[in-house]
Amino acid sequence: MKPFTYLQATDVPSALRAISSSPDARFIGGGTNLVDLMKYGVEQPAHLIDIGKLPLANIEPLPGGGVRIGALARNSDIANHLLIREKAPLLAEAIVAGASPQLRNAATAGGNLMQRTRCYYFYDTGFTQCNKRIPGSGCAARDGLNRIHAILGTSDKCIATNPSDMSVALAAIGATVQVQGNSGPRSIPFADFHRLPGETPQIDTNLNKEELITAIDVPGFPFALNYCYLKVRDRRSYAFALVSVAAMIDVRAGKIHDVRFALGGVAPKPWRVPAAEQQVIGQEPGAEAYGNAADVALKGARTFPHNAFKLELARRSIIRALTTAAVKGERNGNVG
């Protein structure tokens, strides 16, 4: 591991000043991903700014039924929080589908948004080709072992997936990321937070390096209790998603009144296609409508030699997740 300096930030302005002082400075929260990557030599920051003591761990109600999650709230605390369980149980279910209890106890909300891909070729510096790690070096995954890789939103430069479960739920819910920079605060809609690789796969998000995530705002939904987070994976815990679906559905008078869903494990960012949701509003709930939604969501998918199964798996997973969410809705009795 490359030697680095360490600074404990005491307030947000001093943290922002510190991060601006060097291009090789990084914030560290729970450290569950950054420290791992530093040990592997993938990340080599010269300066670590520890934001762990900043007062950003609160979880509190927002006017209008939403919830504000402080950037430093631990994943476990979010998943177990009564407000989240009541207002956004989809988010709680997605969080506990990820990692292990030990990791969730340490990982922060903001850090979860910033975690980097688990692409084999990114994580192991013994591989010389990875455009995300070494821009311009090539993409080993394209002609390598790409069973776990993306089928949507890829570019010639990168086919890695985003590994977060929490982010898939936040994408479906349509959260807003609150950030603070030296020139003030701004809000980033969740759909705009993560980037597609395009020509610059080394840049994962639209967060500027000199900005700090302060909170994630989760809006309230009248049908938040009709949800399902489905994670399909190679073992039943502590494995990244091959495909995951975060879904919520509102069925009234036998028709789909509203629906939200996003996919994980299939794209470089949480994959939500609003047109797919619009497509089925007004239709009768059921496998046919959900399949139609899936077809729109998966439009333009491009598979690679080892991951062709993901396309059909994603389609079936969408149908299963929406079906499960709708059944939950029926049980909840809010079928209008």
Binding site: R118, Y120, Y121, Y123, D124, G126, F127, A140, D143, G144, L145, D234, R235, R236, S237, Y238, A239, F240
Partner: peptide
């Protein structure tokens, strides 16, 4: 093992799967 690069791609316990309690 990546056939073109001759190197194991999942040389860690996150990607080399063995059963966990839930399995």
């Amino acid at each position: 093992v990546d056939p073109r690069r001759g190197r194991v791609v999942n040389a860690n316990l996150a990607e080399y799967h063995v059963p966990v309690n839930r399995d």
